[in-house]
Nucleic acid binder design. Structure first.
Lengths: 144, 144
DNA sequence: CAAATACCCTACTAAGTTTATAGAGTGTAT
DNA sequence: ATACACTCTATAAACTTAGTAGGGTATTTG
């Protein structure tokens, strides 16, 4: 399951994308609108800033804003940032690769292939799920 | 990531399937061969028994054995048994359905669709990954 | 029947992770 | 100068995971 951090991050990103033209948005504004604990959201937005997804401005009129285009922000990257590797086994991840400690012989491991397929399918779908598409989908659903 | 419980369960099942014709296998035998803490494995095998996958016999000459055919035991079921729902969001699971508490309106949620696709793809792949196929794959790799 | 065998069950503990909260610090605009 | 709003460090409560302890129960064998 996704952690709350990842879910909050996604909701915050959607909010920021929807209000992009309003300039910097206060943490408090997002926190209230999305019902996210203020201090918790602070840490989340900071992570997204260090990641290069968001920018921030201090002082009056300050707040957070999207740096990347909504078409460049995808669910796979957000998930990785907050919850780590997407794969179910450490031996089938690309960037966080580690041997499975329970595994006697990785070369002849019968389950690796299935979990590698799962990983690849998951990454493909989540990479394609960009902020732009997510918001387009919400708007489409709202119109009905 | 898969829990150790789920990984241990998979390894124990593979072991049991490979030694199927030997009759009941001792917990200790599996524990030593697969390097799983004895008491921990006990609990795991008991869960698999309650689930209907394994049978057991008490007393001398006792132990655990597969009840289902290796072609009927798949990774999706094992994962669900030990780690719960496969989906990343509670609102896209079939049997453990719950609303996402962070979600304001499920009907217009823009991310549900992507995570539903992920769930469906994952379940499909893991359902197809049966004990029979996993073992066949190991044997194929060993021959090379 | 008795004793050994081996699974069954309940409770507990240690460690790690997640989900926060508190409060002081730093930079910015007016 | 001062209010504003993000930044950083530390801490704590709740929950989950992984593993341990110890006795209970059923079955086989002599």
């Amino acid at each position: 399951m996704l952690s709350k951090k990842a879910k909050y991050a996604i909701h915050a990103l959607i909010f920021l994308a929807k209000h992009q033209e309003q300039g910097p948005i206060l943490i408090s504004t997002i926190a209230e609108s999305e019902r996210i604990p203020h201090k918790f959201l602070e840490a989340i937005l900071l992570d997204l800033k260090k990641d290069g997804t968001l920018g921030s401005k201090k002082g009056k009129g300050g707040g957070y804003y999207l740096i990347k285009k909504p078409s460049q922000v995808n669910m796979a990257d957000v998930m990785r940032l907050f919850d780590g590797a997407i794969a179910f086994l450490p031996c089938v991840t690309h960037r966080y690769y580690e041997r499975c400690e329970e595994c006697k012989d990785e070369e002849t491991c019968g389950i690796r292939d299935a979990f590698l397929q799962v990983r690849n399918a998951t990454v493909e779908i989540l990479k394609a799920s960009t902020l732009e598409k997510v918001i387009a989908r919400e708007n489409r659903l709202l119109e009905k």
